[in-house]
């Protein structure tokens, strides 16, 4: 536990020194305020970019509710461009240390591979979630200001479920880092696999039960306050995370 805490501290300190905390938070804040702005001022935006000629906007369309805007923020912004940038931000977490020899110095200390992997997993998850959470809460307050009240506790629960999805994404990058040397290929492989799971999760909810992206179905139910909340969606991502961690443990000391 002592080793995990030392490694974790260094991971967080690195994010502070490399101003990753700042730029990633700014990025997610920007993404977070984009969706409510688009939803609220679509007509104004279109007008300012050349008018509405040829574009039909239903004048009777109801204004979306706050939770619908928040869902669009996550599914449309955070899970697309946000996810890609996030993966790029941590794709070199293990490969860079392996290539520079730092990992060798760490493993000649009494540090187990599981301690090392756990520190990478939780360190990068924590960094990602702090930045996403700040961006999300700014987005939440902005959405509530523009579209009306939505309970913050429900939004918090949604964010907890979303964080499990992020933990899965980081664990996938950790696994690929033990198999692939190049940071770029680790990033591409993680992005592709995440997108495949996201798309497969949209096919039907029964299939989602067996996919790590199923937790997003649960998060969506919590956000939209539907009555079909099924916590079984939590099982698959946890199983996938454990498989990724133990897979990484098996491969990290191979060569």
């Amino acid at each position: 536990m002592r080793n995990i805490s030392i490694l974790l501290k260094v991971e967080l300190l690195e994010a502070v020194r490399n101003i990753k905390f700042i730029w990633l938070t700014l990025f997610f804040t920007l993404l977070g305020v984009t969706q409510p702005l688009i939803d609220k001022y679509m007509e104004v935006i279109i007008k300012s970019f050349g008018g509405v000629e040829g574009i039909m906007i239903d004048p009777n369309a109801p204004e979306p509710q706050a939770n619908e805007v928040l869902l669009a923020t996550f599914s449309g912004q955070f899970n697309q461009i946000g996810l890609i940038v996030l993966i790029i931000s941590f794709m070199g977490m293990i490969a860079n240390e392996k290539n520079s020899g730092v990992q060798g110095f760490i493993f000649t200390r009494p540090v187990s591979s599981l301690e090392y992997i756990s520190s990478k997993l939780f360190g990068n998850w924590l960094i990602s979630m702090v930045c996403i959470a700040i961006g999300s809460f700014i987005s939440y307050f902005y959405t509530v200001y523009l579209f009306g009240y939505y309970p913050i506790v429900d939004f918090f629960l949604f964010l907890v479920c979303y964080s499990v999805w992020i933990l899965f994404v980081v664990s996938t990058a950790v696994l690929f880092s033990t198999l692939i040397k190049s940071s770029m290929f680790i990033g591409v492989a993680t992005i592709l696999l995440s997108i495949i799971f996201l798309l497969a999760g949209n096919i039907n909810s029964t299939l989602s039960l067996f996919l790590p992206s199923g937790v997003l179905t649960l998060a969506e139910s919590l956000l939209l306050q539907t009555h079909d909340i099924n916590f079984l969606f939590m099982i698959a991502p946890i199983v996938y995370i454990l498989i990724n961690v133990y897979g990484a443990k098996a491969f990290i000391n191979q060569v």
Binding site: V10, E14, N18, S100, G101, V102, G104
Partner: peptide
């Protein structure tokens, strides 16, 4: 242990 390509965390 000293590795072949010694490097550290640059920051």
């Amino acid at each position: 242990y000293l590795s072949q390509n010694t490097d550290f965390k640059q920051w």
